[in-house]
């Protein structure tokens, strides 16, 4: 079954058409990459999916596991299993990383009808997952994203993803601001979570991330629509000819 289904999505921001009838179907077990130049609507797409205020669809519909998202607020979508790894993770001064994670995880568990984890069980689990992501305990004691380096912020995003076990994850420009070593750590973290039950949508400007997170499908987003879809080789084509070549051909 398709985990995420976008049907003819149209969206305006400040009276300007940003998404112009975009459709996409993502099945469980798949990794899709959406590539596009600046201003093609990549971030708008991720905010629209996550249900940010002001990013409501003008027409069209989105389904998560067959359930329409149109009447669901951002938090309900998240609890239902939609995760967005932010391009620019937000600082929460004074809010400890561990307590933030625990609140989020237990909220999701409660939603799923699972037992909430007590403090000890949670810390144990979080440490286990964190160590795989080379996230130190010390980082979890700090306030969320405050004073984190670019790499630390992205690792913390993927750690949250690993803890929340979403059905569909959208990674918005996860490679931005990362050096090669950090990119590898983050990608390993993402790859470790690939399985037959979930799906990942990678939104990126550059092809290099796709060397590490190898997608099953690549889509080219331009001017609010997907103009071309293909396999991983399409990303290489972008790398070789730039977006201009593809857009002109389409």
């Amino acid at each position: 079954m398709s985990l995420l289904e976008i049907k003819n999505a149209k969206l305006k921001l400040d009276d300007k058409d940003i998404l112009k009838g975009l459709s996409l179907s993502v099945n469980s077990g798949e990794v899709h990459a959406i590539m596009g130049p600046n201003g093609s609507g990549k971030s708008t797409l991720s905010y629209m999916l996550a249900g940010r205020d002001g990013y409501d669809l003008e027409s069209g519909e989105v389904f998560l596991e067959g359930q329409s998202l149109s009447d669901m607020e951002a938090d309900e979508r998240a609890r239902s299993g939609l995760f967005l790894a932010f391009q620019y993770p937000v600082e929460l001064p004074g809010v400890g990383g561990m307590s933030f994670l625990r609140e989020a995880v237990n909220t999701r568990r409660k939603f799923l009808g699972e037992e909430e984890l007590d403090h000890l069980a949670f810390v144990k689990e979080a440490r286990k997952v964190a160590s795989k992501m080379f996230v130190k305990d010390e980082m979890l004691k700090r306030a969320v994203n405050v004073g984190f380096s670019g790499g630390e912020k992205k690792r913390f995003e993927i750690l949250q993803m690993a803890m929340l076990k979403p059905k569909v994850s959208i990674l918005d420009e996860t490679d931005s601001g990362l050096d090669v070593d950090a990119l590898k750590i983050v990608s390993d973290g993402v790859n470790a979570q690939r399985n037959d039950e979930n799906a990942i949508v990678v939104i990126t400007h550059y092809q290099r991330l796709l060397d590490y997170i190898v997608p099953d499908f690549v889509h080219i987003l331009s001017d609010g629509n997907i103009i071309k879809s293909g396999g991983p080789e399409l990303a290489l084509e972008v790398e070789k000819n730039g977006y201009a070549g593809l857009i002109n051909a389409a």
Binding site: D53, L84, F86, P89, V90, V95, S99, A104, T107
Partner: peptide, 19 residues
């Protein structure tokens, strides 16, 4: 900040309280 918390599944009141 609010959106970031909501995206992690917290409702508005949980998010406000946390912040």
């Amino acid at each position: 900040q609010l959106f970031y918390c909501l995206q992690r599944g917290l409702d508005t009141e949980q998010a406000t309280s946390l912040i």
